[in-house]
């Protein structure tokens, strides 16, 4: 992990709330599930970087799929090609390596780390949940479908694929591991209904992203008891059985 100067290569709006940000630079190699802290501005306002899961790493570029949730992400959505942008990358502990068949379950912007993971896998089953068809970004990342054995799309309004919540449409089958990423309520429900082994990518509010401030701590079982651990260092990916699901 290091601080790397970057440059916006592409900033493309994919829907009302989502944009694809491609940043060029000499970035150290990342693993699926890891993230980067992206500076919003070179001025002191907004003050903190924003943590984004890495959606893809190319030879000299990182690709992010970002949902506009506040002022910082809105400002980033307006950054133009050629503008400088500084990153701290790669950060955190990603998904554990795969053996056997994998189930990938991504809800909303939670699809991001799974896009990267899918590029290293094949023959997986993907269940992709979103609010509407306009927030299903299979076209932006063609490998998601090309490398999959099965893709199940679920939209809350039924505008594409199955209607309802992702957790009601988990494909049956024997999987060696499920990799889950999405809103907390979705992941908690997934954990409740899914009997197999699963890893979850947690999203928390972060200040530094590299373990200095302890601002992003989450409660997990470690060494036989509940402990607060930093999502940015010990996570953001945790095993389902170690997460304390009653928090938050």
């Amino acid at each position: 992990m290091k601080v790397v100067p970057g440059e916006v290569l592409e900033n493309r709006r994919l829907s009302q709330d989502f944009f694809l940000l491609k940043i060029g630079g000499d970035f150290p190699p990342a693993e699926p599930g890891q993230f980067a802290m992206v500076s919003v501005s070179s001025s002191l306002e907004p003050f903190l970087g924003r943590p984004f899961g890495i959606a893809m790493q190319e030879r000299d570029a990182l690709i992010f799929l970002v949902k506009i949730v506040g002022r910082g992400t809105a400002m980033l959505s307006r950054r133009r090609r050629g503008e400088k942008i500084s990153l701290v990358t790669p950060l955190g502990k990603g998904f554990s390596p795969i053996q056997g068949r994998a189930l990938l379950a991504g809800g909303g912007s939670g699809i991001v780390p799974l896009v990267f993971l899918a590029s290293r896998l094949s023959g997986y089953t993907l269940v992709y949940g979103a609010r509407t068809r306009r927030e299903v970004f299979l076209d932006a990342f063609p490998h998601l479908q090309e490398r999959a054995r099965e893709v199940v799309v679920v939209t809350e309004d039924g505008s594409l694929g199955k209607k309802g919540l992702l957790t009601r449409h988990i494909p049956p089958g024997e999987f060696h591991m499920a990799y889950v990423s999405g809103p907390w309520a979705m992941m908690r429900e997934f954990h409740r209904v899914y009997p197999g082994k699963a890893e979850f990518s947690l999203e928390t509010r972060m200040a530094c992203g590299f373990g200095a401030c302890f601002g992003c701590a989450v409660k997990v079982m470690r060494e036989g008891r509940e402990r607060m651990v930093r999502a940015c260092v010990e996570g953001p990916v945790f095993k389902g059985e170690e997460i304390i699901w009653t928090q938050g």
Binding site: E45, F47, L48, G215, A217, V218, M228, G248
Partner: peptide, 23 residues
């Protein structure tokens, strides 16, 4: 020490509020 429960940080104009609680 475990420190305080989350959320522990909130960005403010040119700064931040924290309540880490000395974990």
């Amino acid at each position: 020490r475990e420190g305080n429960p989350p959320p522990r940080v909130w960005e403010t104009p040119c700064g931040l509020l924290n309540t880490i609680g000395l974990q």
